[in-house]
Design a protein around this nucleic acid. Structure first.
Lengths: 136, 136
DNA sequence: CGCTTTATTGCAAAGGGTTGCAACAATCAA
DNA sequence: TTGATTGTTGCAACCCTTTGCAATAAAGCG
């Protein structure tokens, strides 16, 4: 499990809690919530507190191992970086979610770097608007 | 006050609370928080509940009269649409906020419309990343 | 003006997420 | 292996925001 190595190498401690959370994260191909990870971790370690899950996912995000997005549900969802980059177009009217390849953002990313020397971290975007069906 | 007209015309009721909130919104040129609006409204109508402020700002957002953004503070900030469109580049390291003209997003907006028939509502974006100084 | 309808409000509770702090335990050096 | 150091955890409290519900009061009509 490469994350375990990564965390250790960066000077973080490996705890049973973190190990279980990392394993849960790796089993998901989809956009998982903190709650879901907590449930899965508790199946084996019932005492693990959800704030530990929040803190660990936040850490993984800062290390760039997962991405974090609010898909408009009012909760944060995470996605493992190894499972592919992409973005989402979310219809404010019908809730449809359209997946978009990350390449769509490349020109914008390049422009921000050239014009503002700003290195945008656009690894998992949610853009709200209206899908084809819902434009009256 | 044009918003008052707009709300009435759309079939919404005009209450003292809404009037006071609208006035507070109009006095701001900057990115104001729900809390700030609440404080200002309470100066005149001390009984107004903050959930009314939340609900009214949400309504104004849905009607496209204000934009809503999280600038990374953990609170939502609003901006009056008449005071100009723009976006923000926010440095995850030093917290610097760089304002960006909305035109930067026009090509992306156009591409999403052409390729996905998706009409993106990109009126007030916050993009996180690293500013020039903080790229090691 | 008074009545009816129903949108809006205040309140309290809840929901998702963060944080301060004391107890705990991973790590490392002796 | 033991002890010291200090990063992590669990817990409770808190923050920001949303929501259910009963009471209130705008708006439209006779």
């Amino acid at each position: 499990m490469s994350c375990v190595q990564t965390l250790r190498e960066l000077g973080y401690r490996m705890t049973p809690q973190r190990q279980a959370i990392l394993e849960a994260v790796h089993t998901h191909d989809d956009h998982f919530s903190t709650e879901e990870v907590h449930e899965e971790v508790r199946a084996r370690y019932p005492q693990v507190n959800i704030s530990t899950v929040y803190r660990t996912l936040e850490l993984l995000k800062e290390l760039g191992l997962v991405t974090q997005t609010d898909l408009g549900e009012g909760i944060l969802r995470y996605h493992h970086i190894d499972k592919g980059h992409h973005h989402h177009l979310i219809c404010e009217n019908c809730g449809a979610i359209i997946d978009v390849d990350e390449s769509v953002f490349s020109p914008l990313k390049r422009e921000l770097l050239q014009d503002y020397q700003f290195k945008a971290n656009m690894s998992h975007f949610a853009i709200f608007g209206r899908c084809a069906k819902c434009q009256r």
